[in-house]
């Protein structure tokens, strides 16, 4: 039971991070014509990997973080949102979300069948 609990908790975290990222991408797309706007990104997976490599269950405390992307060059109006980049990020993020929900669904399916078998 504990193995399932810990893994679902991780999946919840990943879902939270991808949901936040979707919101951030939507904000970038909405601001594609706002002069001086700097696009935002969400850092989570790399922080999670570090925590997982460090061990001791610290990964459960990892929180997604919104950061300004200052590396992408800006247009003359000071805005650095590229529509293609955002739409691609949105697609990629959605696929990740679907993958996590599918895995989570599998966990619930497992739980359901084990409850049934117990009867």
């Amino acid at each position: 039971m504990e193995a399932i609990g810990r893994e679902t908790e991780l999946l919840f975290q990943l879902l939270r991070a991808t949901s936040l990222r979707a919101q951030v991408i939507a904000g970038n797309v909405a601001n594609q014509n706002t002069p001086g706007y700097t696009r935002r990104t969400v850092h989570f997976e790399e922080k999670l990997r570090e925590a997982l490599l460090a061990g001791r269950g610290g990964e459960l405390g990892v929180e997604p973080e919104i950061a300004l992307d200052k590396a992408t060059p800006a247009r003359p109006d000071g805005n650095n949102v590229t529509l293609e980049v955002e739409l691609n990020a949105m697609r990629e993020n959605r696929l990740l979300y679907e993958a996590y929900t599918t895995i989570l669904g599998g966990h619930y399916e497992l739980l359901r069948s084990s409850i049934k078998d117990g009867n």
């Binding site: 919840f12 879902l15 939270r16 991070a17 991808t18 949901s19 936040l20 979707a22 919101q23 904000g27």
Partner: peptide, 9 residues
Amino acid sequence: SGIEKLFSG
């Protein structure tokens, strides 16, 4: 699982 983030998005 952050569904409220989906709505704010």
